[in-house]
Design a protein around this nucleic acid. Structure first.
Lengths: 341, 341
DNA sequence: ATGAAAGCGCTAACAT
DNA sequence: ATGTTAGCGCTTTCAT
C-alpha cells in the first residue's frame, strides 16, 4: 500500500466529513470559503474540527488547488540587521494574510541565489520576494518563465523581473557626496564593506567627489559583514595614513558606530576633529554619542510595500506594474557639522 | 477536470521519464536515491532534466512520501539580534542537509505561538525548532501527539517536549550576582526588558543579591525590545535616583551599550564611576568603549547543536534523548573592575 | 447549498 | 536495476 497516514490528529478531511454527516468537499469549503456553507452546517463541521483537533494537510491542498500559500523570501544574511526590519515587516504582513514564509538565505553572490532558486521553486511558492536586483541570467529567465509573482527589493533596476520596491544606491552615494561637499567638507575618508549594494554606494560617492575635484579619498574596504570592530579598525587605519581633520563616510551605520567608538576611545572630538556619516539610520543611530548623521532608509515601510504589492497580485489577480522608489533622507545629527569649516 | 498543470518548466516527472525512455519511478530515484540507478541511465535522465529545466513538485513528493523536507523554525522576533546567530546557523545547517526552513514569528507570548502552531503543522514539517521552553499546555500536547521531532532552544526545562539545547537563565542571574558581589561591588542597579527569559535572569539576580543582604537595587524595566535608547534612558533614570558609584547590570548587551554611551556623553568614567555588565556577548561587546563585561552565550553553537540534534533524528531515526546545557561564560572586560573598591 | 467523481504529481510497496 | 500499480489528502469541475 503506497503512502501512509500522515495526519496530525489521526484524521483526514474525509473522516471529519463522516463525523459531521457531510461530504468531504463541504469540510473543504468550511475551511476555505466558509461563506459558501450554510451556517448550521458550518457550525456542525467546525465543532467536529474543534473537538478532534483536526489540522488539514496543506501539501495535499497545494497539490490539488495549485496554490501553495507559501511565499519565499530570500535574504542575503540573517545576521545583517539592516534587513531585519524589512524581513520582519514582510513576514508579518504575509502571515496576517494567510501566507507562510519559506526562508532562503541567498548570500551575497548571485550564483548562490541561482542554486537556491530551484530548491525554492520545487515548493511552488505563490510568490517570491528577493533582496537586490542582481541576479544571474538563468535566474531571471527561470523566474519569468514560471510566471510566479516576484518582488525585488532594496534596489532599483531598469529591467525588473516583475515588481520592484527599492531605492537607488547610486543616488545615495551621489547625494551624500554633494551634501557633505556642500557643507564645506573637503577631506574625505570612506569605509565600506564589499556587499554588492554597498559597493555601488561607495563607487558613486567617489565619482561624485571626483567631479568636485576631490581625488585624495582615503578608502578602506572590508570583506567581513559590517561590525563595530571594522569601524574602529577603519578609523585607526585612516589616522595612520593622515591625521588631518576629515569626515569619515561609512556604507553602514554599524561601521560608523565603530568609528564613533574609536574616536571616543582616542578622545577625539566629534564632529570637530573627525566627522562621521553613516548609512541606514538603524535604531541606534539617533542614540549614539554624538548622534549619528546618516542616510535614513525606511526598511519597515519597504517591507510593507513589498508585501502589499505581492498580496495585491495574489488576491486580486491584478497585473499592475509596480516599480516603487521609496527614496531616502539625509539626516544631519551631530556627528557632522553643518557650518563651513 | 480537477487540478491544473502546475509545473515550472511545463513538465512533470512522467514527461521527463518518457523523454529519457524510463519509468517515472526511475526519474524519482535519480532525484532522491541516485545511487540506486545505473550510471548510464542516471546520466540519461539527468541530461533530460538539465536540458528541460525540470523542477520537481515537492508538495506532491511530500504528499506521496510523507516527508516534507520542511523544518519549521519559530523565533520570537526577527529584529532581536540576540537570536540571529542561532537562526542563521540553524538555517545553514538545515539547507546543507536538504531541508527548507519554514519561518514562524511567535512573538513573546505562548498564546500567540499556539495559534501559529496549527498553521505550521498544516505543512507537515519533518521537524520543529522552538525558541524557549514556555509553551501553552495545548501546544505541548499537540506537539507530543503528532510525534514531530521538536527541539526547544535558548532555555532549560525539567519536562522538555522532546529534545532541548539551551542554558539556564536562572543560573545566569545567580552567577552574575555572585560574580560582581565577589569582586566587591555593593551598589547595584538593574536594567531589564521584560521578555520571559530576561525576567528570569533579572529575578534570579535580585534574589541572589538579597541572599547577600543587598536589597536596595535600583531596578528599571522596559517593555520595548532592547535598544541603545533604553540603555541611555536607563542610566539617566538611575543617576536621578542615586548618584553613588555602582554597577549597572543589564539583561541585554544592547542595553549595556546604551549605558556606556550615556556614560560617555556625561563624561562619566567607566568603570571608575559607573561599571556596566551586559548579557549576550554580541558581536560588538568586545569593541565598545570600554569593552563590555558580559555573559557570553554561543548562539551560533547553540543553533548548530539544535540543528544537528534534529538532523540526527531525521536521518538516522535514532531516538536519543537530547538535553544539552551549553552553558555560558562570564567575561570580564573593562566596563567592570576586578579589584575590590 | 451540497455532493460525486476525477485527478493534482509524486513515491511506497511489490514485482520482475 | 528497473517497472507496475495504487494511493497520499485534498480540491476542481460538473451536477443536483
Amino acid at each position: 500500500m503506497p503512502g501512509r497516514k500522515q495526519t496530525v490528529s489521526g484524521l483526514r478531511i474525509a473522516d471529519v466529513a463522516k463525523m459531521a454527516n457531510v461530504a468531504p468537499i463541504t469540510v473543504s469549503r468550511v475551511l476555505n470559503q466558509p461563506e459558501q456553507v450554510k451556517e448550521s452546517t458550518r457550525n456542525r463541521v467546525l465543532k467536529v474540527i474543534e473537538e478532534t483537533g483536526f489540522v488539514p494537510n496543506q501539501n495535499a491542498g497545494a497539490l490539488a488547488s495549485n496554490r501553495s500559500r507559501l511565499v519565499a523570501v530570500l535574504v542575503p544574511m540573517l545576521t545583517n540587521p539592516l534587513f531585519s526590519d524589512t524581513f520582519q515587516a514582510i513576514a508579518e504582513q504575509l502571515a496576517a494574510n494567510g501566507y507562510q514564509v519559506l526562508l532562503g538565505i541567498s548570500g551575497y553572490e548571485a550564483k548562490q541565489e541561482q542554486e537556491l532558486l530551484d530548491v525554492i521553486l520545487s515548493r511552488r511558492p505563490d510568490g517570491i520576494i528577493l533582496t537586490g536586483t542582481v541576479h544571474t541570467e538563468p535566474s531571471r529567465k527561470r523566474l519569468r518563465a514560471t510566471g510566479v509573482p516576484v518582488v525585488e527589493t532594496w534596489d532599483v533596476s531598469d529591467s525588473p523581473i516583475d515588481m520592484l520596491v527599492g531605492f537607488s544606491h547610486e543616488e545615495v552615494g551621489r547625494r551624500v557626496a554633494h551634501h557633505l561637499f556642500g557643507q564645506g567638507y573637503r577631506h574625505f575618508a570612506l569605509l565600506s564593506v564589499d556587499d554588492p549594494r554597498g559597493k555601488v554606494r561607495a563607487q558613486a560617492f567617489l565619482e561624485t567627489l571626483q567631479s568636485h575635484g576631490i581625488t585624495d579619498v582615503v578608502h578602506h574596504s572590508f570583506t567581513e559583514l559590517p561590525a563595530l570592530e571594522q569601524g574602529r579598525e577603519g578609523l585607526t587605519r585612516i589616522l595612520e595614513t593622515d591625521s588631518a581633520p576629515r569626515v569619515v563616510v561609512c556604507t553602514s551605520d554599524t561601521l560608523a558606530h565603530g568609528v564613533l567608538t574609536e574616536a571616543a576611545s582616542r578622545h577625539l572630538k566629534v564632529p570637530e576633529q573627525v566627522s562621521v556619516f553613516g548609512f541606514g539610520d538603524m535604531s541606534f543611530a539617533a542614540h549614539t554619542f554624538p548622534p549619528l548623521s546618516t542616510v535614513r532608509i525606511d526598511g519597515k515601510r519597504l517591507g510593507q510595500l513589498a508585501a502589499a504589492a505581492l498580496l495585491r497580485r495574489l488576491k486580486n489577480g491584478d497585473h499592475d506594474i509596480v516599480n516603487d522608489d521609496i527614496g531616502f533622507t539625509l539626516i544631519d545629527r551631530h556627528s557632522t557639522r553643518v557650518q563651513t569649516p
